[in-house]
Design a protein around this nucleic acid. Sequence first.
RNA 1: GGAGAGAUGGCUGAGCGGUUGAAAGCACCGGUCUUGAAAACCGGCAAAGGGGCAACUCUUUCCUGGGUUCGAAUCCCAGUCUCUCCGCCA
Length: 419
Amino acid sequence: MHDIKEIRKDIDAFKKALEKRFIDIDYEKLKSLDILNRELIQKKEILEREKKDISKSKDETLFEKSKNISQSIDKIIEEQKKIKFDLDKILSNIPNIPHKDVPYGKDENDNVEIKRYGKIRKFEFVPKSHYELGEKLCMLDFDLASKTTGTRFVFVKKKLALLERAISNFMLDTHISKNGYEEISPPLLASENSMYGTGQLPKFENDQFEVKLEEGSDRKFLIPTAEVILTNIVRNTMMDLKSLPLRFVASTPCFRKEAGSYGKDTKGMIRQHQFYKVELVSIVEQNKCLVELERMTNCATRILDLLELPYRKMILCSGDMGFSAEKTYDIEVWIPSEKKYREISSCSSCSTFQATRMKTRYKDQNKETLFVGTLNGSGLAVGRTLIAILENYQEKDGSITIPKVLRPYMNNLERISLN
RNA sequence: GGAGAGAUGGCUGAGCGGUUGAAAGCACCGGUCUUGAAAACCGGCAAAGGGGCAACUCUUUCCUGGGUUCGAAUCCCAGUCUCUCCGCCA
């Protein structure tokens, strides 16, 4: 959420900064609502002052007048609330301003590759897709999932289920013991406030699974990413400067409706309604966001290095970035069957955008109250890592070699094959 | 699910319907003292919003939302959350 005071100072600069985002904002309306809002506040405060004086004087002859003032105040408040509501509605739908490092561009085609890592394996046979391999091994079952649940779900079975668990544990252990993150096993439901805090609401309600509880109770949502919960840990708090930075990691299922991606990646487990993801979240002093973003991205790529999977690092263009992000790196892993790189991690700095929504602040050395910076990144998406391992480590007979670092997590199993 | 108790500033914790934005303590900041530190003593210390170039000033805020009243942290109603006891249960 942007501060209207900052916008007011230089609305043209604000407009310009957001041009890169390709979104429609009614700036004239924003401006006029802001002015109207402040006018009403002033009117109200003058009357309140008057009322307060009467009350203090305890002069009974003025009590009747005070009553009348109350009525006028009520009217003004009602009007002002409406204006403020409209104003907030516009504000809460404006995305974060892209950092100046962010390349200009409309969509994913304009993302810029920074560097490639690892060696792409040369196959002496035509590499199969992960779903062909998984189904042949009888360890990925999409039909069964559509029977019990519906489309965009999958059963992972036997040794692949073990592999999935191994991937998750390996990532967690690495982030905890090597990268300095604190392990969390969080709730998988988030309140409406939490969803607002990280920016999923109000704009992206359509992507969320809402859970029906009792009639009249507060709304709850299945988390689309652990980012929601991990970041909201600090919602509405005054942080101790000494406690920063905070770094959390969690491995959780994530739930997304994937509305608007009908017909996209329908085959296989690239895009599911439910998937595991190891999530990294950092809470930092606001001027340390970009340094932390580099650090976090390195924590994510380290996993791929250890798994010996080829990948490339991308910086997202302005048009492809998420709502709350000021700067985002995507990590894309090589998928042999598609002969292309696919997203396996996304690391973003949200600057103070989420903190202003969450009201998370700290006092710096000068005792000035500032909003914290928040960052989140996948470290990594477990399901897609499973896919990458299946495809990159496949053998001609359809068996899968297990990456060395994962073997300790799988009773030293070296290979997954049909038997 | 049944029965109670509670929610106050960064934290702990007082608070007869009218100088209570809120005692006290802790923490924090500044100063005196000290070779330095600690202790002691003195002083400062909430947030949000509005107006002003500024010094400054005004309004709001004691969980949230309604209500009573000239006036509410204090009284009434509803809700949320927390805690204790009982029951049930992974």
